[in-house]
């Protein structure tokens, strides 16, 4: 088995504005099972960061435990990373972000990691609107521990052993909307056309950006009867819209002939351009997004695309009025304001 990726690349690989090719955004050769949906998501992250001209050293990858949480080894090999404890990625990410808000935080988790052991952390990081991208690679099972049903497995779904899940599923995207997440999207590992622009938009979002990506576990949950298999997902997918992400400095060149176009302006001037496919849905209206989700579920559809966005809410740093300077760069000058200032402060507290 190959454990190293050959060094040679296509001699005409395109370069981005930083002069990097996609290679500079790759990680080591994956050790996940061949065909695992998680690898496709890693590839989408690589492509999105390349296209966004992100400097790799400006990114920190945070993850918990699981096959999904292993993936940061397989993308952005030149970035920072922290592979934390099962379900505890959000608090580690919060701490890191508090220490240095200049980095882009890229959280990767699994359905087990987020919807079971990490559920409390998941809820609170949403509530606080931490400025980060949070991707759940959702395969409806605990892949790493050999495929036990997870909390996102659909009721009635059959796993590889033939066991039928008796419990209701936790719908992470609906839950995120409910908890007040300011960017919620859903996608499928097998649809990079949709996933890549969503990741780009998530990276530009001011606040917490959640993407629930259905990502088949080929080894334990890709059987007939599973609702998280490649075939099942492809048959039941319905998109809210087609998604284009248009960075600030690009002109909008794509033209649409039919359907309703909706442009959503991001805080930095970039635009998410949606060609709506679903009626009665307004991505900037929480109620409408929530009901679109409920309707889709009632119809047995998996709704993908951008579901909800709110660019105006304050993120955690804005709420806390944190300093722009990374904590390790603060000097005595900023940290010890002097006895005069301290006495002023003390007055308030007396």
């Amino acid at each position: 088995m190959s454990y190293l990726k050959p060094k040679f690349r296509h001699p005409h690989l395109p370069k981005n504005e930083l002069g990097y090719t996609k290679t500079e955004y790759e990680g080591s050769l994956s050790t996940l099972c061949a065909g695992c949906g998680h690898d496709s998501i890693s590839a989408a992250i690589v492509q999105a960061c390349f296209e966004m001209n992100i400097a790799p050293h400006q990114v920190a990858k945070m993850s918990g435990i699981g096959c999904s949480s292993k993936t940061p080894t397989y993308f952005l090999g030149n970035s920072h990373g922290f592979n934390s404890v099962h379900g505890r990625m959000p608090s580690v990410a919060t701490g890191a972000s508090m220490a240095n808000k200049k980095l882009k935080y890229f959280g990767v988790s699994g359905d087990g990691d987020s919807a079971s052991i990490g559920m409390g952390q998941f809820a609170h990081v949403i509530r606080r609107n931490l400025n980060m991208v949070y991707i759940v690679m959702n395969n409806g099972c605990y892949g790493l521990t050999k495929g036990q049903d997870s909390a996102t497995a659909d009721e009635g779904s059959k796993n590889k052993t033939g066991h039928i899940n008796p419990f209701q599923a936790i719908d992470l995207a609906s839950l995120a909307i409910e908890l007040g997440a300011t960017f919620v999207a859903q996608s499928f590992s097998g649809d990079k056309h949709q996933l890549i622009p969503l990741i780009k938009a998530a990276m530009e979002h001011n606040g917490f950006a959640f993407i629930n990506v259905i990502s088949p576990c080929v080894t334990f949950n890709n059987n007939v009867g599973s609702t998280k298999s490649y075939d099942y997902v492809r048959e039941h997918i319905a998109a809210t819209s087609t998604v284009d992400f248009v960075p600030t400095h690009d002109e909008i060149t794509t033209t649409y002939s039919e359907g309703e176009i909706k442009d959503i302006a991001m805080h930095d001037g970039s635009i998410i351009r949606l060609k709506k496919l679903t009626n009665d849905w307004d991505p900037e209206n929480r109620l409408s997004a929530a009901s679109a989700m409920q309707n889709a579920r009632a119809n047995g559809e998996i709704l993908t695309g951008l579901l909800y966005i709110n660019e105006k809410a304050a993120n955690l740093h804005q709420t806390f009025k944190t300093t722009d300077i990374p904590l390790n760069r603060l000097t005595e000058k900023e940290l010890c304001p002097g006895s005069a200032t301290l006495s002023e402060l003390m007055k308030d507290l007396q």
């Binding site: 990726k5 040679f8 695992c36 690898d39 097998g190 490649y230």
Partner: peptide, 15 residues
Amino acid sequence: CIECDACMDVCPTSC
């Protein structure tokens, strides 16, 4: 082929 994209993603020379 189940169109998982794995081959496309892994190919070092983007073939």
